[in-house]
Design a binder for these strands. Sequence first.
DNA 1: TTGTACGCGTTATCAA
DNA 2: TTGATAACGCGTACAA
Lengths: 322, 322
Amino acid sequence: MANIQEIAKLAGVSSATVSRVINHKPHVSSETRAHVQQIINQLDYVPNINAVSLKKGATKMLGIVAPTFSDSLGTFLKNFTLAAQQGGYNVTLFLTGLDKQKELEAFERLRNKQLDGLVLVIRLNEWDVLESYAKYGPIVTWQRVEDRNIQSVFMNQYDGYMLALEHLYEKGYRKIVNAYGNTAGLNTKSREKAYADFCQKYDLNPNEFKHFYNQGHMSEGETMARWWVDQTHKPDAFVMATDYLASGLVTEAKRLGLSIPQDFAVVGFDNTLVAHLLDLTTIHYPIGKQGENAFIMIDNQLSKRTNPLEALSFHLVERLTT
Amino acid sequence: MANIQEIAKLAGVSSATVSRVINHKPHVSSETRAHVQQIINQLDYVPNINAVSLKKGATKMLGIVAPTFSDSLGTFLKNFTLAAQQGGYNVTLFLTGLDKQKELEAFERLRNKQLDGLVLVIRLNEWDVLESYAKYGPIVTWQRVEDRNIQSVFMNQYDGYMLALEHLYEKGYRKIVNAYGNTAGLNTKSREKAYADFCQKYDLNPNEFKHFYNQGHMSEGETMARWWVDQTHKPDAFVMATDYLASGLVTEAKRLGLSIPQDFAVVGFDNTLVAHLLDLTTIHYPIGKQGENAFIMIDNQLSKRTNPLEALSFHLVERLTT
DNA sequence: TTGTACGCGTTATCAA
DNA sequence: TTGATAACGCGTACAA
């Protein structure tokens, strides 16, 4: 396999000159340039990128770390990757499962110079252990974090949730049930706060109905439909943690012969494909733009620029379930 | 940033010894090993992976190349990545859009040693230009290809399509409409062949109804529902190119007040999330396993092993639309 | 068991 | 404009 020395020898120049030609640097006569280029083409030569990376101390490679592959991760990944490629980077995906060690392995890639930067979607390890890697390169996360060494594209879901609530109120619904996601996360706390404030504002009893926690799988949405049937004092609306969860509720309700929104209204969250498919009223969550911003943040740190971020905001998408 | 020499100096040994310790190689006394390891920990040292890659001529890095990010790509990517990580590889994603040049850039990574191997999901360039990269590392594709330098996890969709057809026949449907995908691809040809054979077998007129081609987007499925309404001579069943497309047909039909499968039956293809969600009868297409096989093929070539592949087969998933 | 010394392939500094 | 050469950081024959 040809290397730069071989090209140099065959072209009758030094490797320095060949390097200049490869990298389109000045101070080479156009004749030499042409000649060297010809030899390069002839031998079908390309520079070994590992040598370049070693020399430069950078790889133009970014990592994206997440526990599992979901619909949302898909959109995030897609947009992040597209933006990164646009900026001259490639991105490699690390799926950690629930293995803290695997997450650390990804971070080690930052330390050992394989990655120039990293975006951590959902963390497994404690923030302080992850933060200790920030000195090896920019780290951006999708979650909220109080750490000036780790940037974040986090959005406060209080606002989005309030949008859903206000929409229901406006439509006349007063008996609302909440299905929250992971209790440990901050999103649930923000949403609870939104609901509490909402009840206070309109003088509603926040504990009139059961609150559902740690809901995530579609089957749990299905269970909620059956729960509704069993109630004597029935709610008239559900705000669901995700579209996915909402879809379980809606499809099971239909199987049970209920009609939506006549029997009850449903609002999803995220505005993913599923919501479109099932005509779910939902809150649009700009995950794609968060992905783009994640790249911009990394790129800004890496190239010491300050490119502006995309504006991020929730908005209501009204469809047929309210 | 500490390097191997520095560790060696501080430990009072040579870099060779340090290297042996790092890589857990024999012929080091346990005392020296312990001592060196201590210095390593103390200085928080890790080997620069670019130097290692340069030296070894391999990166333990694989690429996956596709034009756009879809639901199916998601499952393929997930399974491929998981398998690769299991085998000590990481995978980087290349999204090419419709840009042939971008696709070539990914292949260049193979040539310049950044990638040890590559899986090409959907190609943009001609096979012969892609094939010319096979000498730089193993290439596996999801599409069908006649080239002994490029392996494939392709599955003949004839079998899967016939499964759908036979199922409909068994259920009593005789007036079947086909919605095919991309006309240029081989999948459509296989499916057409299946339908032709099916008609011959049961003595049906293959042209009793219109054939739909190049169907892909959900809205096109929706259009087909309205088409059905307009017909005087109505078909009683649809076989759709993808679940996604089928979902458009089904949801629009419901909006129009039709009932499925009473008015007509629908069979999807792929068995993706959407099919589960809408209770679509569909053909399960083991895309995840194809992803795993793609890795096994690459790994086998790279490590000159012959690990067995996963068995791949279509099967019918009967739900509520037939 | 340990060390020496070279090579991997490139970029960049300095001198010519 | 060009060339010689020193890094970059590591692995590995080969010698001791």
